[in-house]
Amino acid sequence: MPEARAYGDVADCLGDRDFQLALWILYELHYRGFEGVDDAAEWDPLLLVSRAGLERTMEHAVRELVASTDHAPPALEPDSDPAPQVVKALVQMTIGDGVSPVATFLRRRATREEFRDYLAERAIYHLRESDPQSFVLPRIDGAAKAALAELQYDEYGGGRPDRLHATLFARALESLDMSTDVASYLPDVSGETLASVNLMSLFALNRRLRGAAMGHLAAFEATSSLPCEQILRGARRLKLPDAVQDYYDEHVEADAVHEQLAIRNICGNLVTAEPELADDVLFGAAACLAVDSRAGQKLLTDWQDRRDRKPTGSGRAEAAG
């Protein structure tokens, strides 16, 4: 029996596997549920209360993280139109140096095993790719809704089931004889990665946070094309199957489109329609960058620790850079 933990034992909920796994399981009831679990559990009052408690703790931690890192969003000028300011801020916040450390590692140094680790870690999201944001569609209107629908249509394969992004990822996993069952990745996924996925559900399932959900989407898409190109090069370097390359190849072009749709057509139009959401949109974008950056750091640290324990492997991999 694992040792029982109390709520008060959670010091850093964004890196706490038990905390994030509990929240992930509660969210999963709203997506696909679990075999052998009554579908009605989705609206079980006790579970909803539990979820609300975890969410409040998580949101508080995310707000603290955003305020304490260099991902804090810029303050908006109160006397001028917020929409163009939000668009400009989103572009600036997501420019950075354009390359994520994880993508660089995968491109230059990762072994085949480490690349598989990466796919396993990301499976928890990519096998459900874009599903959280679909919950926002009925919560927004007009041009922003049309733009979100356009983006989601592309994520969902543009009318072609075989091009569903989640299916492309599943095919990549299959090509490496890896499971396509999300649950099989739960025992090993880090609290930080679970937090990055839960963040999307937190924003998308709470109508109050719809602005943050769309800001998150904008930051996510705008920081995806360039890393996907790096990861694609890593997959080619390791001569991984076509299905793996296809997934990242698709995302270079798709996310270059989605970046524009999300920043301008979704967030810009959303803030024009609901100016009071401006700060939430920027908070969501900042939260995406801060939480995902933590998940990336955790991955890199774990890879490094494993290499340090196996000194024979690391020298060879270093030289590959």
Binding site: E150, A222, S225, L226, E229, E253, A256, V257
Partner: peptide, 23 residues
Amino acid sequence: RSVVAVCRCGRSDRLPWCDASHR
């Protein structure tokens, strides 16, 4: 795809498509 992004800065490695190299 239903909407495509065409490069205008000339830095893309995937012309005519944008690959976010402008970033």
